[in-house]
Amino acid sequence: MLFYSYFKTLVGKEVTVELKNDLAITGTLHSVDQYLNIKLNNIRVVNEQKYPHMLSVRACFVRGSVVRFILLPPGSVDVELLHDATRREARGG
């Protein structure tokens, strides 16, 4: 549940979600669930010409299983917080 909790703290921030099919979408994180499914608002697609079907899409739901990476906003990453949470999770807590 570490990453679910962490992504909840990023709601309202801008992230770029890169999918396994190479489609990359930048948008405001609207919500996340325990499967790390993600909803983005005010999206724009990186390399838009290559994906014309996305031109009329403004908000989207991305299935967690198709995500490769999520590029995080540097100002929202507290590394100490992540280390503590990771150690706690590794202990099974």
């Binding site: 489609l23 014309p52 009329s56 899409v57 908000a59 198709v66």
Partner: peptide, 14 residues
């Protein structure tokens, strides 16, 4: 399913 996009009817068709 890869993604579900909400279509902006003002921008339809593209």
């Amino acid at each position: 399913v890869v993604l579900l996009g909400e279509l902006d009817l003002a921008r339809e068709p593209p």
